[in-house]
Design a binder for these strands. Sequence first.
DNA 1: CGGGTGACTCGAC
DNA 2: CGTCGAGCCACCC
Length: 120
Amino acid sequence: MTKSSQSKIPEKNTDFFTRVYDVVRQVPSGRVTTYGAIARHIGSPQSARMVGWAINGSHTQSEYVPAHRVINRKGMLSGKHHFGGPRVMQELLESEGVAVIEDHVVNFDSIYWDPYMELI
DNA sequence: CGGGTGACTCGAC
DNA sequence: CGTCGAGCCACCC
């Protein structure tokens, strides 16, 4: 076995994944961000889909990744079904003070957190 | 190595 | 806010 390469989600190596996790962890409680914002911040504004895929593997990380704070640009909980239940994501957001109605975040524009903020 | 898929986004209507 | 089509890139078979 010269090269064992059967890793579904590499622990590291993929800086893309690592950067996504790093940004998502910096999202403060009660705030949300979008896949596109993260994608743009890491240098791939067109790769918003990859951000979703990266977050899909966030469970492989030892560190907790608040994936429920990451939603699409419409303010809808697009990934709620990936939390083990369509209810979990909403519960988590409401637990942090984020109002959610009909799978969409209320005052989305007000609680929106931009990754650019960490540069300040 | 090609094709399908996806937790997205944008523009147009 | 509704739908449709196109672009995008990594992963899986």
